[in-house]
Simulated assay, not measured.
Amino acid sequence: MRLDKFLKVSRVIKRRTLAKEVCDRGQVEVNGRPAKAGTEIKPGDVLAINFGHRLLRLEILSVQENVPAKLAAELYRVVEDRVT
């Protein structure tokens, strides 16, 4: 699955266009490497998202096309969430 789509489906970022913009600005890393919106992700990958003063690091547990909002948080595990 594409990185921007995963960010939207998992509800980490609200809209796919915003997820693409965040990726294009270089604010997202997959397994320690800068990632573009089209980067393919899989379970076990670790995402690092820089939201300005907040760093969010997630481990992907599952990749699914459609998920109800209540179950979206089960697609990932928060490894680190800190304010810098």
Rank of each mutant, 00 (worst) to 15 (best):
G44F: 07
P43I: 12
L58P: 06
R2E: 08
L47F: 06
G26S: 09
A37C: 12
K42W: 00
E59D: 02
V9L: 08
V22K: 10
V83Q: 02
L47P: 08
N66C: 05
K20I: 06
K20P: 05
F6D: 03
T39D: 03
L61M: 13
V28C: 09
L71Y: 11
T39G: 00
S62F: 15
Q64D: 11
L71N: 14
G26M: 09
R2W: 11
K70E: 12
R11D: 04
K70A: 11
D24G: 05
I60L: 14
E80N: 09
R33E: 04
K20F: 02
E29V: 01
V46A: 02
L55R: 10
V67H: 04
L18S: 02
P68G: 04
P43M: 13
A48N: 12
R54C: 03
R11L: 13
C23L: 03
V46E: 13
G32H: 00
R2Y: 02
R25Q: 15
V12T: 13
C23I: 14
R57G: 01
E59W: 08
L58C: 09
C23H: 06
E65S: 12
D81P: 10
V22M: 14
A48M: 10
L71T: 13
E40K: 13
V9S: 11
S62G: 00
G52H: 11
L58Q: 13
V46I: 13
K5V: 09
V79E: 03
D81R: 09
K20Q: 14
K20H: 07
Y76L: 12
L47N: 07
T17G: 01
V78M: 06
E59Y: 01
S10C: 13
A48C: 06
N31D: 14
V83L: 14
N66Q: 12
V83Y: 08
N50D: 15
V30Q: 03
R57H: 06
P68L: 09
D45W: 05
L75I: 11
D24I: 03
A37P: 07
G38I: 04
D45C: 07
R16Q: 07
V22S: 10
E80V: 15
V30T: 08
L75E: 01
V78K: 08
